[in-house]
Amino acid sequence: MRKKTRDGAAVNSRLIRRPIQRWFPVFVLPTFACFFIGFIWPFLQGIYLSFCNFNVAKDAEWIGIQNYVKALTDPGFGHAFWNTAAFAVVSIILINVIAFAVAYALTRKMRGSNLFRTVFFMPNLIGGVVLGYIWSLIFDGILKHYSTYLTANATYGFWGLVILVAWQQIGYMMIIYIAGLQAVPEDMLEAAEIDGANSWQKLFRVTIPNVMPAITICTFLTLTNSFKMFDQNLALTEGMPQVIQDGAKINMTELLALNIYSTYNINKNWHGVAQAKAVIFFLLVAVLAIIQLTATRRKEVQQ
């Protein structure tokens, strides 16, 4: 006890505090400079460029909100938005339900659960582009038996992407859920059992409220991951098939990030539009993430 107070006193002593107060800018500066150069500055410049017509960033020319008008009236962008929304809903539900179920099963006392945890986690270690190509080979190999192929229609491409992403992310979310499940107080479960709760009641009334923090973080991760999905999308279908609808071209399996990328590549008239789409995209993901966080946080319980 005495030792503890002396340690506290040492940290608070002026001998230590003074130099920290005086010198902290020197230690903060490098990190802050990196953060500024690598994040804040490009971000601000990006917002500025979204109001400009530019080819190379240095000869940008201010044109007002024209880029935003073009971005919002682009049917491809609208289609990509609904595609992304549908993809996000399906993958959030699928990934979290399966990841939770697997985690729940693997926290039971069973033989080889460590092995299973490792195996389920492993897909995470492979990069998105590689996965995209591997899965496109797998899907095409299967579909070949039915004389068709992955980019033949939008449905195959959509569900192909869902399967790929579920396969990749379930393991990761599972690890978070396992950590959450292991923190559920044993005595609470025991008390519920003594009070006569069956296993479903224990799951829904005790376990799930207690793992809410894990659910919050997992839904947050799956939500932002699905909205930001890019490399898997690019490598698996590249947005194909492309169809003409009402006089406009639409890439049927394109998600938002890929749509922004391909907009930029049309030509220099579209660089600003792509930048405007990127700003809209940022706002969208930020707002959704904040809503989701407040909604699930409210359900968290104090232990």
Binding site: T151, E238, G239, M240, P241, Q242, V243, I244, K249, N251, S262, N265, I266
Partner: peptide
């Protein structure tokens, strides 16, 4: 690129 993508599809 986009024109060709449509033709290839």
């Amino acid at each position: 690129d986009s024109w060709r993508a449509g033709v290839v599809t």
